[in-house]
Simulated scan of single mutants.
Amino acid sequence: MGNQTEMTQFILLGLTSAPELQVPLFIMFTLIYLINVVGNLGMILLILMDSHLHTPMYFFLINLSLVDLGYSTAVTPTVMAGFLTVDNVISYNACAAQMFFFAVFATVENFLLAAMAYDRCAAVCRPLHYTTTMTTTVCAHLILGCYICGFLNASIHVGGTFHLSFCVTNVVHHFFCDVPAVMALSCSNRHVTELVLFYVASFNTLLAVLVIIVSYILIFINILKMHLSAGYQKALTTCASHSIAVSIFYGTIIFMYLQPSSRHSMDTDKVASVFYAMIIPMLNPVVYSLRNKEVKSAFRKVVLDGKLSLGL
């Protein structure tokens, strides 16, 4: 095959080729995906149904659940299908589409976590001005900016990757069409494309991390100034869930993308990819619900109303 136009399909190696692990892994990932769908859809419905949760923080949380559901759905069904088929074949266009949507949602989550940090900073540092700072218009612009950055970033990565020539093999050493795994198949000079991937990913990640770090520095400065234990505790509770989500997300992203290609181990990348593509989207609703009194209160209210409506 001389160039990318002659490549009609890719073969995904999947997580493992061991026959005895196929069924147990299929069951495990099916359960993970079901928990992911139920958790994120449940969070969305809960926020929409409870008027007390119609605040900027939960507006961002709805979008976080949508994004988690989106990029998990872009990957997990392909992984599950791989456990049931001998040759996990994906077409050229389907591979590009999977890579695009995964990159979109992952980038949106990156900037969404930064927007949520800014929101928490406004809530803790200027509580009296919070409603005038985080207006509906401001929140909508922040969300729109996250999605625009997501589509731009995905276009750069997918366009750069599929502009390369593929002429040696079509076997992707991964369980989905991730950028580094597909790029490794190219027989053309990919040095410039790898540099673009590294610098764009670095810029996106470092910009969001910088916003988060500055926001948390300001938050902790204000917490140290608080004399009332109630205010101190409320400020910590406000940021606890977000800080856990940030730590898990950026830990795996930095490990995966912000290192030279010569140091990449595909087997190690697979494990990291399982974590951030499937485990993190499942954990986020759990983290935000278990550590949030308002969410737990809303859940009890919805369950109680449901029981009353059924006459139980």
Results as ranks from 00 to 15, higher is better:
residue 113 L to R: 04
residue 113 L to K: 08
residue 114 A to N: 01
residue 115 A to N: 04
residue 115 A to T: 11
residue 116 M to P: 06
residue 117 A to W: 04
residue 117 A to K: 01
residue 118 Y to P: 01
residue 118 Y to E: 08
residue 118 Y to R: 07
residue 119 D to P: 01
residue 119 D to W: 02
residue 120 R to M: 06
residue 121 C to F: 09
residue 122 A to I: 15
residue 123 A to G: 00
residue 123 A to F: 11
residue 123 A to H: 04
residue 124 V to D: 08
residue 124 V to R: 03
residue 125 C to T: 09
residue 126 R to W: 15
residue 127 P to F: 09
residue 128 L to R: 12
residue 128 L to E: 13
residue 129 H to M: 12
residue 130 Y to W: 12
residue 131 T to E: 13
residue 131 T to N: 10
residue 132 T to Y: 10
residue 132 T to D: 06
residue 132 T to I: 15
residue 134 M to S: 03
residue 135 T to N: 07
residue 135 T to K: 04
residue 136 T to E: 15
residue 136 T to G: 14
residue 136 T to L: 10
residue 137 T to F: 13
residue 139 C to Y: 12
residue 140 A to V: 05
residue 141 H to A: 15
residue 141 H to E: 15
residue 141 H to G: 07
residue 142 L to K: 00
residue 144 L to W: 13
residue 144 L to Y: 13
residue 144 L to F: 14
residue 144 L to E: 09
residue 145 G to W: 10
residue 145 G to D: 12
residue 147 Y to K: 04
residue 147 Y to Q: 09
residue 149 C to P: 06
residue 150 G to F: 00
residue 150 G to L: 04
residue 150 G to W: 03
residue 152 L to P: 00
residue 152 L to A: 10
residue 153 N to T: 14
residue 154 A to W: 02
residue 155 S to C: 04
residue 155 S to L: 03
residue 155 S to K: 02
residue 158 V to M: 02
residue 158 V to L: 02
residue 159 G to K: 08
residue 160 G to V: 06
residue 160 G to M: 11
residue 162 F to M: 03
residue 162 F to H: 05
residue 162 F to S: 02
residue 162 F to V: 06
residue 163 H to F: 12
residue 164 L to D: 03
residue 166 F to A: 05
residue 166 F to E: 00
residue 166 F to H: 02
residue 167 C to R: 04
residue 168 V to P: 04
residue 169 T to N: 08
residue 169 T to H: 08
residue 169 T to Q: 10
residue 170 N to I: 11
residue 170 N to A: 09
residue 171 V to N: 07
residue 171 V to D: 02
residue 172 V to S: 00
residue 172 V to L: 03
residue 172 V to E: 00
residue 173 H to I: 11
residue 174 H to W: 13
residue 175 F to R: 01
residue 175 F to Q: 00
residue 176 F to M: 06
residue 176 F to A: 05
residue 176 F to G: 05
residue 178 D to K: 00
residue 179 V to K: 04
residue 180 P to T: 10
residue 180 P to A: 01
residue 180 P to M: 01
residue 180 P to F: 05
residue 181 A to H: 01
residue 182 V to W: 05
residue 182 V to A: 07
residue 183 M to S: 10
residue 183 M to Y: 06
residue 183 M to A: 08
residue 185 L to W: 02
residue 186 S to N: 00
residue 186 S to I: 07
residue 186 S to R: 05
residue 187 C to N: 00
residue 187 C to V: 01
residue 189 N to A: 05
residue 189 N to Q: 12
residue 189 N to H: 08
residue 190 R to I: 15
residue 191 H to S: 14
residue 192 V to M: 15
residue 192 V to R: 09
residue 193 T to E: 14
residue 193 T to L: 09
residue 194 E to C: 10
residue 194 E to L: 07
residue 195 L to W: 14
residue 195 L to K: 08
residue 197 L to M: 11
residue 197 L to P: 01
residue 199 Y to A: 14
residue 200 V to C: 03
residue 200 V to E: 13
residue 200 V to F: 11
residue 202 S to L: 15
residue 202 S to E: 07
residue 203 F to L: 11
residue 204 N to L: 10
residue 204 N to E: 14
residue 204 N to A: 12
residue 207 L to H: 11
residue 208 A to S: 05
residue 208 A to R: 02
residue 209 V to H: 06
residue 209 V to C: 05
residue 210 L to K: 06
residue 210 L to Y: 09
residue 211 V to N: 01
residue 212 I to E: 09
